[in-house]
Design a binder for these strands. Structure first.
Lengths: 168, 168
DNA sequence: TGGTAGTAGTTGCGTGTGCAACTATATTAC
DNA sequence: GTAATATAGTTGCACACGCAACTACTACCA
């Protein structure tokens, strides 16, 4: 239980209820949304959310192919994590690897026909889920506010996450 | 498309840029924020974010003790995941287990003195991080808007995530 | 040209997590 | 009181992920 006032650190006051609801709501909303969307995609199409993410990223790229390193940063995975994920998608026939002629170190992840078909199925499910569970709660103006909010938060957050530790 | 009621729209069109920024920004912001906050807590106090979450939940409970199952749902972990996490915290001397006299199946996770001390250290770091990376980007009114947004999203999202699949 | 530094991708290993099965206790029905 | 069912917590297992080390290649520089 709360005992003494916080020590002599800067800005160490506990969060007030407004802050707490803004922050913890954000965390809970993310957890619930990703869990629900992942479960739905998995149940209806046997496709985890991360795999869907890869497929849609590849599909939206020029010529249905993306370099592995670009893909990794797009889908928020480490390079090794992406290697393994693409291994699975290749095993399932949804993605193929093609080597890059311009840079012999490079590999492209390329969408196969099966991958395109699977994505066509899954996209409707996923978009409907994102709409009904998230976007439908906001009108256009509110969506703009959210987008603006992330635009303010993201630079600092991504810098801090890359740095490993935010200066202070 | 700012649909007002949750109309069952089948063939969902692709997200427009406003929707995309609201949704993907949310995902990226969460990933970056949790990664940065976790790394900072780990670097400065050797405490992962999930462990911090457990400690603060226990501390804010009556008598510094919480039943395992309540703790699991508070920190968004499965029961088995929580068992293992509490194992680690017990090994590190931050949490102790005490059996529950009222229900012989039950266990309490109890904060130890070391746990309380560690939490006192870590709290300042974490709160400063949450402020600087997230809350500082919003004034009080905007924080209220965010809180209201999560209040709208959460019931449906948590219901869907519990159901396993939100049969649209 | 040769040497050094940097980058792309993969692999070995450790870790944190969920699911399903299990034990032990509680609750309800009869 | 006993049987059927539900719940609390733990354990076995599988899996997805990150880090660090490694190979292969590219880029830069003197």
């Amino acid at each position: 239980m709360p005992l003494t006032e916080t020590t002599l650190m800067p800005a160490a006051a506990a969060l007030d209820t407004r802050e707490l609801q803004a922050w913890r709501g954000f965390l809970r909303a993310h957890a619930a949304l990703t869990k629900a969307l992942d479960a739905e995609l998995e149940a209806r199409h046997g496709l985890p959310l991360t795999s869907y993410d890869v497929l849609i990223t590849v599909e939206s790229a020029e010529d249905d192919r993306v370099r592995m390193c670009d893909l990794a940063s797009s889908v928020l995975l480490s390079r090794s994590g992406l290697t393994r994920l693409v291994d699975r998608l290749e095993r399932d026939g949804l993605i193929a690897r093609e080597s890059c002629t311009a840079d012999a170190r490079g590999q492209f992840a390329v969408l196969t026909d099966n991958g395109r078909a699977k994505l066509a199925e899954a996209r409707a499910t996923h978009l409907a889920g994102v709409h009904s569970l998230f976007l439908s709660h906001f009108n256009a103006e509110e969506q703009d506010l959210l987008a603006a909010a992330w635009a303010r938060v993201l630079p600092g957050a991504e810098a801090a996450s890359r740095a490993g530790c935010c200066s202070s």
